[in-house]
Simulated scan of single mutants.
Amino acid sequence: MTEIRMRVNGVVESLDVEPWVSLLDALRDRLGLMGPKKGCDQGACGACTVIAGGVRINACLALAVQYAGKEITTIEGIAQDGDLHPLQAAFVRHDGFQCGYCTSGQICSAVAMLAEHAAGMPSAVTGHPRDAAAAAELSDEEIRERMSGNLCRCGAYNGIVDAIKDVAGQEAR
């Protein structure tokens, strides 16, 4: 066993884990956080997406010991002071979920994606960073590309895109 400490949703947690335990299993089995889901357990679906140090990651592919001393945010830590995060509220307004299984990963991914976009990180759609005015607008195509690591088996993609555009201050369909 290895003792690790990490800040999860603003709380410092101390865990004893075997070196091979995934971050997802540590969050769910050791800390009781059921938001991140074990979908494929291979990094293909995004249901386990969490934010680690401001970057979205697939928790099923990360070892818990890799994140000792790091800040981890799950869907349980997205809301502030009992109020829904703007993306959570937008997902409700725009029907960005159906069964809900992928929703926690979708929202965590969208929160980090909007921060990446605001920081000027290029995507496959934008290519090289463009001028600030052009980069400010997120097209449907760019949102879909930037969110492509998160699958929704129910097909709620239009609502997800609309929710993200709403929070980004753009007109949804």
Rank of each mutant, 00 (worst) to 15 (best):
L114N: 03
A59F: 02
S148F: 03
G169K: 05
H85G: 11
I75M: 14
S109V: 02
H117Q: 10
E18N: 10
G39I: 01
C45M: 11
P129T: 04
A119Q: 05
E76W: 04
I143V: 15
K70H: 13
R7K: 15
A134C: 01
P36C: 09
L23C: 08
A89R: 15
V92I: 15
E141K: 15
E171R: 15
G120N: 11
I75C: 00
R130N: 10
E18K: 11
M6N: 01
K70V: 12
C99A: 06
S139W: 09
Q42T: 14
K165H: 03
G82P: 05
H128W: 09
D29K: 14
L33I: 15
D162Y: 01
T103P: 00
R56W: 07
V50F: 06
E116L: 07
A133C: 00
P86D: 02
R153V: 06
P19V: 08
N58H: 15
N9R: 09
V50N: 03
V12I: 10
V50P: 03
R130Q: 15
A136L: 12
A135V: 00
M121P: 01
A134N: 06
L61I: 05
E3N: 13
G100D: 02
T126V: 12
L114P: 06
G105S: 04
A112P: 00
L15T: 08
I107T: 09
K37A: 05
Q98D: 05
E18A: 14
L114A: 07
H117C: 06
L23S: 01
D140R: 14
H117D: 04
G10F: 10
M147E: 07
C108L: 01
A89I: 02
Q66Y: 12
G159L: 11
T74W: 07
I4G: 04
A90Q: 11
V21A: 04
G96E: 03
G100N: 07
I107R: 00
K70L: 11
P19N: 13
Q66W: 14
A52P: 07
L151N: 05
A168K: 11
A110D: 07
M6S: 11
H94V: 04
G10Q: 07
S104H: 08
F91W: 09
R30C: 02
I164T: 12
T126L: 11
A110M: 08
V21D: 02
F91Y: 11
D41Q: 04
N150Y: 10
T73N: 02
A172I: 04
D131E: 14
D41H: 03
E18F: 08
L138F: 11
L24W: 08
A62Y: 05
L15C: 10
F97D: 00
